[in-house]
Nucleic acid binder design. Structure first.
Length: 672
RNA sequence: GCCACUGUGGCUCAGGGGUAGAGCGACGCCUUGGUAAGGCGUAGGUCGCGAGUUCAAUUCUCGCCAGUGGCUCCA
């Protein structure tokens, strides 16, 4: 019996008998109620049952910790798979990892419905109550292949990841086991507080050409309380959802008779968009951008030249075919399938709803000779584009089929790229910081060296990727470099935010493009008297007005700062005899360009306030005898704070200053 | 596009083989009320669309459309 030295989290060193388990060490340090789910031994996650044979460092992993939660989720995924295997003997488990906020498990099995989830949950509860011990068992590759002879998915993993002659581990609980490296909770009884949340299809290994699997999602928490807390959070998040708020506040409307993914901006939403566009336009002016306007369609040949039509044909609205050619096809007895082929082959003439603004802007560039003195040329347009997004993808304002980019194309010399990128990024920064959007991540999308989808010369790609990296560094924000995330024509810098449900959306983007100038043979006269090829930068700091507004609605939970708010001032009168004064105020504010909503009805003041609150006005003016007699207003904020007896003129000058400064609650934060 | 679920007045939702109900909102009357629902009344629905089964379909079946959660895709 030999002694080993164990370094604890506190840096103390204890001596134990070799063969002691991680659990015993942790219990020795923290007592029986240590709240640990697993251990970290020499930095490696281990089961609590792990036997310690040599000198090492030991630390407990608390269940509530991020690490602990992932282990809990992972174990619960196993529990789910066990329940499914018992209820559906033909189901073949594939993989089931923990993910942010929960876990999922993919099965090759018959399709099941939501009711079946409840049955599976019951089975899982039953297995929890059985208090099954979760055990780690070492297996050779041969043994694993034998265990999984009926499961081609597991066999695929075994063959790929586990070398011949070596082995791996399975984790068993009761009669059931799963190929897994662990670690896991000690017993199924640790997994009582779970809920299966949804069901979907998924492709084996995420590849559309592979077999479709049934994916079951769930969540699990160490206590009933935490599970309930999470469910409460989710239902609160729903109230913040831009689709819910958009309806409540009448910001936009989507009508199935207009078309899927086509946004109708109603007056209130339109006022938000208008303010944002004015804001960005003024910033663009400061950076010497030139505003242009271009049509919503362009000839197919234009998009053949740009490459968009052939490359993205599946995700565009079908072309608008010329009448003449249609007639000719009809006379020739062209069948539908022949027509489809002609479209595929590009043998048709007509127009395309523009999927991108760049070709139009390029034609503006090349509409006259350019010299190096003209560069950089920055052409900006709120350009509306149309893309045939997959029907299952369309969602609210964040994924739509017609959207307006705050687009611009910068035509510059190669030596200007980095400065131009910096200018673009500063624009994004100004916008995000003005709106208080701090929770974004920056992604530098690079090419995937193994993929063939990218066009252009390697050395140009390298230069452009370096320029993006350097520009991103200037942001002083952490960024990730992601191979395979580049556009097919060049690298890019994306700004990504999360919505209330935790889904990520790309907003702003800055992309370097050597490809289109080449395709359209763009030129400028250099100082050397020779012709040169400019480089293009595509950039859209908002991304699209639709998506940005959707995200912004959630960011503010509908409570927009005064400069953006669809209703900037609401007015409610105590009784009808105050209507005249109310009208007068509304008129004065309206003339000053302030957006006002009123309620002068005969309802009680409490009711009027309640109703007006649905519009989420930053300020509600209450008008009664006091105010009328003294030319005052009483101001009620959305936070219910109150300032009474403010002279009307003072309120007007204060709110105008607040709006102009784009500050929230400037000088008008009501006293507590 | 794929899988699951959902679709009932403007909104939120109940109901369910015998052609529909509530609350809020709207409108009208009463009330003239000081800070998150005063009272009474009225209007408003081919129960997403189209077929089928049935004596009878909003309810059951099928197809389509749209929405929701995922998967895949995203210039």
């Amino acid at each position: 019996m030999s002694l080993i030295s164990v370094i604890l989290e506190t840096n103390e060193v204890n001596e134990y008998v070799s063969g002691i388990t991680a659990a015993e060490v942790i219990t020795d340090i923290h007592g029986k109620k240590h709240g640990c789910i697993a251990a970290r031994i020499n930095g490696i996650q281990r089961d609590l049952s792990y036997e310690i044979l040599e000198d090492c460092e030991v630390a407990g992993i608390k269940t509530e910790s991020e690490e602990g939660m992932y282990i809990l989720r992972h174990s619960c995924a196993h529990l789910l798979a066990q329940a499914v295997s018992e209820l559906y003997p033909n189901a073949k488990p594939t993989i089931g990892p923990p993910v942010e906020n929960g876990f999922y498990y993919d099965f090759a099995m018959e399709n099941i419905g939501e009711d079946d989830l409840r049955t599976i949950e019951k089975k899982m509860e039953e297995l929890c109550r059985k208090n099954l011990k979760v055990e780690r068992i070492e297996c050779t590759q041969e043994k694993l292949k034998e265990l999984y002879q009926d499961n081609p998915y597991k066999l695929e993993i075994i063959n790929e990841r586990i070398g011949e002659g070596s082995g791996s581990t399975i984790y068993s609980q009761g009669d059931w086991y799963d190929l897994c490296l662990g670690p896991h909770v000690p017993s199924t009884s640790n997994l009582m507080h779970f809920k299966l949340t949804s069901i979907s299809s998924a492709y084996w290994r995420g590849d559309q050409s592979n077999e479709q699997l049934v994916r079951i999602y769930g969540m699990v928490y160490p206590s009933k309380h935490l599970l309930k807390e999470r469910l409460r959070q989710l239902s609160e998040a729903k109230l913040r959802d831009h689709r819910v708020i958009g309806k409540d506040m009448q910001l936009f409307h989507i009508d199935e008779t207009v078309g899927q993914g086509l946004i109708l901006w109603t007056p209130r939403g339109a006022s938000i968009r208008q303010e944002l566009q004015s804001f960005i336009s003024s910033e663009l002016h400061k950076q010497f951008y030139k505003q242009v306007f271009t049509p919503h369609i362009g000839k197919l040949d234009l998009y053949r030249a740009s490459g968009h039509f052939p490359y993205y044909q599946e995700s565009q609205y079908p072309p608008l075919i010329n009448h003449e050619q249609m007639k000719k096809f009809a006379n020739d007895g062209c069948s539908c399938s022949e027509l489809a082929n002609k479209m595929q082959e590009g043998e048709i003439e007509g127009y395309l709803l523009k999927p991108m603004n760049c070709p139009h802007h390029i034609k503006i560039y090349s509409s006259q000779p350019r010299s190096y003195r003209d560069l950089p040329l920055r052409l900006a347009e709120f350009g509306t584009v149309y893309r045939w997004e997959q029907s299952g993808e369309i969602s609210g304002m964040t994924r739509v089929r017609g959207f307006t980019q705050d687009d611009a194309h910068l035509f510059c010399r190669e030596d200007q790229i980095e400065d131009e990128l910096l200018g673009c990024l500063s624009l994004v920064k100004i916008i995000f910081s003005t709106l208080g959007m701090e929770n974004y991540r920056v992604r530098v999308g690079l090419r995937d060296p193994d993929s063939s989808k990218y066009v252009g010369l390697e050395n140009l790609w390298d230069a452009a990727e370096n320029a993006c990296r350097n520009a991103a560094k200037s942001l002083d924000v952490e960024f990730s470099e992601e191979p395979g995330e580049a556009a097919f024509y060049g690298p890019k810098i994306d700004f990504v935010v999360k919505d209330v449900l935790g889904r990520e959306w790309q907003l702003g983007t800055v992309q370097v493009d050597y490809n289109l100038p080449e395709r359209f043979d763009l030129q400028y006269a250099g100082s050397d008297g020779k012709m040169h090829r400019p480089v293009m930068i595509h950039r859209a700091p908002f991304g699209s007005m639709e998506r940005f507004c959707g995200v912004l609605i959630e960011h503010f939970a509908g409570k927009f700062p005064t400069w953006l708010s669809p209703t900037q001032v609401a007015i409610a009168t105590i009784s009808e005899k105050h209507s005249e004064y109310g009208e007068m105020i509304a008129e004065r504010l309206h003339v000053l360009g302030i957006r006002v909503d009123t309620d002068f009805s005969d309802a009680t003041i409490g009711k009027k306030i309640k109703n007006l609150r649905k519009l989420k006005p930053p300020y509600t003016l209450i008008i009664g005898d006091e105010e009328v007699n003294n030319s005052q207003v009483s101001i009620r904020g959305l936070n219910n704070a109150q300032r009474n007896g403010i002279p009307l003129e003072q309120f007007i000058s204060e709110i105008i200053e607040e709006i102009n400064s784009k500050n929230k609650n400037y000088n008008l934060t009501p006293k507590e």
